[in-house]
């Protein structure tokens, strides 16, 4: 056997420049663990892209009925405005549903593959593992957003008038205001292994009350108040204004403030629950069970 490299008494694992370390780990989690594994399931890739495209045309057909002058809705006689409404809703709601679903799913698949123990055994902190794990899902949603907006603009006549600063801030806050709940959902799967009531509930609740497919003003007054508890509602309101009407930061300030409040409350809550769950599974000895 060829002589292996000699071993010093202290660990020699690289103490890298922190920025380089973050970039390297982002690459490893996103392109190696995320993209390379995802892309190796060709049928899944095909069905995912189909899942981005089909709803756009489905709601386009539905728009014909909803915007009929006799329908009595806010969009009656104005099909263009409804098409723009749902195209933006579809393009951005994926960030939220994927945060709720994929992060939890990721924890679950690491449990199933037996790699979770090795992830948590490394000096990379559990919180950082969680953060890096989100990047690929978000990247995929940027791609989905591009495809959906492209179809909207290219084929369905959606006209964009973008206020970039307001759009970027709204987009970032749309993600961060839902992040805490996503961490909560993934902590739940770490604990319960199968079945994630939080993710299922949040996804349904968000789609119904988040103003994705129809404005919350369409809801009966007795339940419309619930929509104000859904941060996506504020996120989509701000994104639509900044993307379709060129409204600047001042015009969407109220939505931004609400999303900031959600961010400030739910992220510490989610992280605290994640820490508690991680401790719990290490006491119970169920970290690697599935």
């Amino acid at each position: 056997m060829e002589a292996p490299p000699s071993f010093p008494s202290a660990p020699r694992s690289a103490r890298l420049d922190p920025v380089l370390d973050v970039l390297r780990k982002t690459y490893l989690f996103t392109f190696l663990r995320g993209w390379a594994v995802w892309f190796s399931y060709r049928a899944q890739v095909f069905l995912t892209i189909l899942g981005w495209v089909i709803p756009v045309f489905f709601y386009f057909v539905l728009a014909g009925y909803l915007t009929n002058p006799t329908s009595g809705t806010a969009f009656a006689g104005s099909p263009e405005s409804y098409v723009a409404f749902f195209v933006v809703g579809l393009a951005f709601q994926g960030f939220v549903t994927s945060l709720y679903g994929t992060l939890a799913q990721r924890i679950r698949s690491e449990q199933m593959m037996g790699t979770l123990e090795h992830l948590l055994l490394s000096p990379t902190s559990p919180g950082a593992v969680l953060a890096y794990s989100m990047v690929f899902g978000l990247m995929l949603n940027v791609l989905a957003m591009g495809v959906i907006l492209g179809i909207g603009v290219g084929f369905l006549g959606v006209h964009l008038a973008v206020s970039w600063a307001a759009l970027i801030v709204s987009g970032v806050l749309l993600v961060t205001s839902n992040l805490g709940m996503a961490i909560l959902a993934s902590s739940f799967i770490l604990w319960t292994k199968q079945g994630n009531p939080i993710a299922v509930f949040l996804t349904l609740y968000t789609e119904l009350f988040g103003g994705v497919f129809f404005p919350v003003s369409f809801l009966p007054r007795s339940v419309a108040w619930i929509s104000y508890l859904v941060p996506l509602n504020f996120g989509l309101s701000a994104v639509r204004a900044s993307l379709l009407s060129g409204v600047g930061l001042g015009g969407v300030a109220t939505d931004l403030i609400w999303m900031t409040v959600y961010t400030a409350i739910t992220i510490p809550l989610g992280l605290a629950f994640f820490r508690w769950t991680l401790r719990r599974v290490r006491v119970d000895g169920t970290l690697a069970t599935y």
Binding site: L28, L32, A36, V37, Y41, M113, T124
Partner: peptide, 20 residues
């Protein structure tokens, strides 16, 4: 304890990368 869809080098790079 490895990713089945990645090759040997990719797996090693991933796990060693967690240690910097």
């Amino acid at each position: 304890s490895f990713y089945y869809r990645l090759d040997g080098w990719q797996n090693l790079r991933y796990f060693a990368g967690l240690y910097g």
